[in-house]
Design a protein around this nucleic acid. Structure first.
Lengths: 170, 170
DNA sequence: GCCACATTGTCAGTATACTGTCAATTAAAT
DNA sequence: ATTTAATTGACAGTATACTGACAATGTGGC
């Protein structure tokens, strides 16, 4: 009888694993972003934070982390760097001494405005090798998958949290 | 005339960007791997390294980095940790004093054998939310995309490099 | 008012990733 | 053979990520 205790291991155990493919694409995505946006001194994470602070002025770090699904600990350092570059400012919240509210500076709004075309270019480039129809399909499946697996990550996306810093009275 | 210098920024600039979706899926993939493989004390990267050393006994760090497309600098630390856990050993190469060859220990081969089902489970779980046909489509598109964007990352995959540590004489 | 509990920002520790540099060693050029 | 190139492993520095802990603060029940 065959009775092998162990199936022989091949590199397929790595190459065909979705986890490996996602890691690879993440590496590629970051590399393309950095290449296209070299002149702006912004990382992908910093860009996402900047966009969110722009659309949610006065948001605090915890809510920001929920809205872009980044770890709260990690985000602390990201915010520090954005502050060091003077793209954002932090102001203490009057009603809660624990909270620090985040706002874009003029410089921050400026970079965000200027970097947009380069970000677009990077996003386009990473799907470029696929046929247009396949790009659509992939984006659709990816979006579904991220949404359906939302609870699997440590920091699930909570877009609705973004509203809390407005009208807590309401 | 409208003449807006800047389009109003929305969160779509983040949520619909493929780069953001790949980052999210990578986070989710790692979280599921860690959850399923908690009892084995192995990270996804360490697992990939272990598989590759298993299928390429006597490979060196530089070639290993090419075969799994991981950064050479990063891999140094990964190897150290695998060595500390006594899952691999490093032996100096007789014909080249710079090179250290990598081999699995018995313990390493054992963990690799035992962890496989859990890894499989994690990989299955991350695509589970999709319909079977969609899983196939996504995997196919992902594989294509990683392959076609291979040169875009700092460390392109060079599977053929794996053979060099055999028969350099040939 | 007091106590249990939750929240916020922060920090220390570990693990990827990438950039750039280096010494030791090897290979190639001439 | 000697100079030049390239390769290998290592290191320092920066930037995500996650775990677990902590003090300060806020909120609830009573």
């Amino acid at each position: 009888m065959p009775s092998s205790k162990s199936t022989p291991v091949t590199m397929d155990a790595v190459y065909t694993a979705p986890g490996y493919l996602f890691r690879r694409m993440q590496q590629i995505a970051v590399a393309l972003f950095i290449e296209e946006c070299r002149s702006f001194d912004l990382t992908p994470v910093q860009y996402a934070a900047l966009v969110t602070i722009s659309t949610h002025p006065g948001i605090d770090a915890t809510r920001l982390s929920a809205v872009i699904a980044f770890d709260r600990s990690t985000l602390g350092n990201v915010i520090e760097r954005l502050q060091a570059k003077e793209f954002i400012v932090r102001k203490p919240a009057p009603e809660d001494k624990r909270v620090k509210l985040l706002y874009l500076t003029k410089a921050g709004a400026g970079v965000l405005n200027e970097i947009m075309p380069s970000v677009e270019k990077a996003q386009t480039r990473m799907l470029q090798p696929l046929k247009p129809a396949d790009r659509k399909t992939l984006l659709s499946l990816l979006t579904q998958l991220v949404d359906l697996n939302n609870e699997a990550s440590r920091v699930p996306l909570r877009a609705e949290d973004a509203l809390e810093h407005l009208g807590r009275s309401g």
